[in-house]
């Protein structure tokens, strides 16, 4: 009886962990979608911008968003 109780507890523990992981994955996916949208917008802005200083700024922002997306994809793959 005691062992069964212990096993049940262990099962719920693992389950909640998995649930949390799942929730996080879905949050990250959500963010990734938004980041993708942002990247696209920035690329549009870059294409129409002529000022060198501002172009540099947009390029850097695109690099940042790209790095963040890469990090997110890697996190999902690892889990």
């Amino acid at each position: 009886m005691k062992q069964k109780k212990l096993l049940d507890k262990l099962k719920t523990f693992f389950d909640s962990d998995a649930r949390e992981r799942e929730q996080q994955n879905s949050d990250i996916k959500d963010i990734l979608k938004k980041l993708k949208k942002r990247e696209r917008k920035l690329k549009e802005k870059l294409a129409s911008e002529k000022n060198a200083e501002k172009r540099k700024h947009f390029k850097q922002e695109i690099d940042v968003v790209y790095a963040q997306r890469k990090k997110g994809i890697k996190l999902i793959k690892e889990q």
Binding site: Q24, D27, I28, I31, Q68, K71, G72, L75
Partner: peptide
């Protein structure tokens, strides 16, 4: 939300 965000922050 910021929990997930923080994971992606550089």
């Amino acid at each position: 939300l910021t929990k997930a965000e923080r994971k992606l922050a550089l």
